[in-house]
Amino acid sequence: MLRMILKRSLIAVPSLIGVIIVTFLLTRALPGDPAAYFAGPAATKEAIEQVRVKLGLDKPLIVQFGNYVADLARGDLGTSLTTGQPVATDIRNRLPASAELTLLGLIVSMLIAVPLGILAATKPGSLADHLCRVISTAGVSLPVFFTGLILVYVFYYLLGIAPAPLGRLDTFLSAPPRITGFYLIDSAIAGNGEVFVSSLKQLVLPAMTLAIFSLAPIARMTRASMLAVLASDFVRTARASGLSPATVIVTYAFRNAMIPVVTTLGMVFSFLLGANVLVEKVFAWPGIGSYAVEALVASDFAPLQGFVLTMAVMYVLLNLLIDILYGVIDPRVRIEA
């Protein structure tokens, strides 16, 4: 197991190097001029040049790249010009916000989509099957920001049952002492019920938005994979042996159908991190998605590079986790590896 983890991590190194080079070049190829942007609305050519020198953007690309890599080696991701903070600090502060939201969205989505998919597979052509199809098609066809705005409009503006879409906590509460950065966990550790309830309430609408968007792939994959497994010989044997339908479906069929579902979950998690960008904008969520968009608008290189790099590291870790999960679910994978 340990050898596998080590091997997989080594394989990731060249892709990370690639990511560093490509993001560096891509951000430099952006049409905006950060010096002109940050010199302010009334700047002269000289003022813009002064800003350019201050930002080190007057040096040749290769020198800039060398400086960037040297800083990176020291764990310095540079400083964001839009927030004025070191990028590493920004990401450390904001990543838990995005991760908490994305994970909760994924869990909600899984809790709905997996049972729905199983139900649809056991009774193909039934009402449940059609329901599964309609819900997942509708969910995936609505853009996330639209679903988000509709939810805010109905549950906050019209009904008044959801809290104001103002980020992670009620405005007049302060954040729990930071341990994990996940407010739900931190407030539970601190034993602060008020903060826990408030952050949970703030999470409901954005998590629902993400869940609605990600129902489709999970439900469809569960259904397809269950259908294939249910039609296989060992299920027929299990049924013929007189095992109860619940045992057959949950213990025998579902475990075998889980590999493609877990793969899909990994993919869904990564594209939810992407979809987060818009959801965070709608709910004023202080996550890394909205951070990256703000940086992009200002052609702010350092946060963009930091964001892409963080994402790349997360993908690598996620894939590793999924590979390990394969082994847990299906011993054959472990042996072949």
Binding site: L149, A164, P165, V282
Partner: peptide, 21 residues
């Protein structure tokens, strides 16, 4: 003074109309 950043114009309007901002 608490100054919150709310990027969505629709939400800023909703916050005002609901009396939260």
């Amino acid at each position: 003074v608490v100054w919150r950043i709310v990027p969505s114009a629709g939400n800023r309007r909703a916050l005002l109309e609901r009396g939260d901002a």
